[in-house]
Nucleic acid binder design. Structure first.
Length: 219
DNA sequence: CTCCGGGTAG
DNA sequence: CTACCCGGAG
């Protein structure tokens, strides 16, 4: 079922070129800034950071709290996100000489646990960093994934993170390139057809057209 | 104008 | 369950 969903989405939308970031540091910046916010707003904040010359963890730590908040303001939740960013950057500088890639490319489960121990980094943010920043084969679950799975009848609307992740892990080969592309396609599809309000099921939704109900089947 | 989507922490 | 924020939808 999930393999078929991938095939249909890929045929409909093609390759998505994710994650939109210049390097590992900028990727992790986006992962934290995009929590509960639309990507367009995150881009404004990242552009501000670039303009300010903040291109690595050490540079981020030279900003004072107020200045950092001003730069990331367009992404919302700027007070708590400024704290999260500073804690994350401090951890990277203290333990990895400021090189985020060294953490993200480390042994998967250990790196994931370490990320989760940091304030402001929950499962989705950690997994996004590991997949998109570290090239690791771990499937990212987000609200779009949850909504699409629920509407396909695969999971309850309130299925938790681990349940959804286990579903994808069991159905697919552990391949970072595939996981990367699949998640990007789900996001694309959620924005184009499977919107939260007024979904366009009858207006050419590729899944509505091609996926037959197959409850309980994870082929 | 109000309402809502969207991760994490407490 | 609520706080935290913005911008787009209705």
């Amino acid at each position: 079922m999930l393999t078929r969903v991938y095939e249909v989405l890929y045929a409909a939308y093609g390759a998505q070129h994710w994650w939109p970031a210049r390097d590992g540091f900028e990727m992790t910046l986006g992962a934290i800034l995009t929590q509960n916010t639309r990507w367009e707003n995150v881009e404004k904040a990242i552009a501000n950071m670039r303009s300010a010359g903040v291109t690595d963890a050490a540079a981020l730590l030279t900003l004072d709290e107020a200045e950092l908040q001003r730069l990331i303001r367009p992404a919302g939740f700027f007070r708590q996100k400024s704290r999260y960013l500073r804690c994350f950057a401090a951890h990277i500088v203290a333990n990895y000489s400021g090189d985020v890639t060294r953490l993200l490319a480390g042994e998967l489960l250990a790196a994931r646990a370490e990320l989760l121990s940091l304030p402001g980094i929950g499962p989705e943010t950690a997994d996004s960093m590991l997949l998109y920043g570290g090239g690791q084969a771990i499937f990212v679950i987000d609200a779009y994934t949850r909504r699409i799975c629920a509407r396909l009848g695969l999971t309850p609307p309130d299925a938790d993170y681990a349940t959804l992740q286990a579903l994808f892990s069991a159905a697919l080969p552990a391949d970072a390139k595939l996981f990367n592309e699949y998640h990007a396609l789900l996001v694309r599809h959620a924005k184009e057809f499977c919107t939260s309000r007024a979904p366009r099921c009858a207006a050419g939704c590729p899944l509505a057209q091609k996926i037959v109900a197959c409850p309980g089947c994870f082929c």
